[in-house]
Design a protein around this nucleic acid. Sequence first.
DNA 1: ACCTGAACACCGTTCAAGT
DNA 2: ACCTGAACACCGTTCAAGT
Lengths: 202, 202
Amino acid sequence: MPRKRSLTTDQLAAAALAVVDRDGLAVLTMRTVAQELNMGTMSLYRYVTDREQLERLVVELVLGGVDFTVPDLPTWQERIAELCERIRLAVQAHPAMVPLLLVHRHASPGVRRSGEAMLSVLAGAGFAGERRVIAFRALVSYLIGALQAEGLGPLSGAGTDVLATLGEQYPYLAETAVSARGVTPQREFGEGLALLLRGLTP
Amino acid sequence: MPRKRSLTTDQLAAAALAVVDRDGLAVLTMRTVAQELNMGTMSLYRYVTDREQLERLVVELVLGGVDFTVPDLPTWQERIAELCERIRLAVQAHPAMVPLLLVHRHASPGVRRSGEAMLSVLAGAGFAGERRVIAFRALVSYLIGALQAEGLGPLSGAGTDVLATLGEQYPYLAETAVSARGVTPQREFGEGLALLLRGLTP
DNA sequence: ACCTGAACACCGTTCAAGT
DNA sequence: ACCTGAACACCGTTCAAGT
């Protein structure tokens, strides 16, 4: 245990997140973070053993702001949806870091807390054994996929305009891309999740 | 158009995929691929403008083997499920490259062909307008999330044993991890998708 | 015409030295 | 005790040169 540090790990994480938010994940580097803090590059290794650990700190910072207490809502579907929406909101503010959520999804306390909260809702709803496993994994898969899709560029964004151009080769893709223009990321996320929840039964 | 090349792009992609399969995505490097082919590093730039393009070739190689003709099955749900399962099978053989699918999901013809096939099934089932957008995106989100989850380590793998240890802090996570041991990746993928399909109505 | 080595501007990290 | 510069083994890529 070292004595006195000029930095908290939160400040370090905040600096890293600032770099990612401003310049993207590709620019996240021990050197760029050190610069952000006006320190020597090697000073970061006082706080972090690894670049990997620095990334994990970013994940924790983003997920740390999320309230994972189970919301007091009438149905379990609404409780799950609200938990997912809280996560979406926290992540949406930092779209560039979404890939880090996936890479570190095993080692992160924040990810675990979120899983525990979702599982407690499922268990309370009567999901047990392998049924619970399947339901949980389906929800997590959807959540991860949807967050990533949103982060990498919504269907209503620039990529969609390109797709709308490819009418000859991909008629359905083009047609669907046009319809997608009216769908906000929040609706897309929420209504997609609602579809999955509709199929879930304990 | 250059005249004579000692390599096809398929051979180049195969060499890159071999490196990824053997040593992981982190080792994929212009230098390692060149070594795999017994060429100078810079020779790769005869075939590829970029490291990014090399990665795209890998994506195309994996997705190129997938049959995206709509299967002749009784219900549209079965048709979607079969298309998804074909993708899962192709990708499963090369779990380390899954992140590439996501990074290049916009620029890849293979990804587009898969989207076109799924959309044609949805359209045939009566999905139109924004309903089709939501359904399609939900399916893609699930697919991406599930493939990634499988690639990064199934719930029934080593990570699960660790989770089962954390009983005090995360009781539900621990309990669910134990139940997860009996669930194969294929069942997890298929039954999770079935849940989503159950919630889908045109 | 096709291929490639040297060189440049970057990485993460070790290690020995500064204050 | 805390911090850091030099150095090492790597990257992707430019460019001029080899055959």
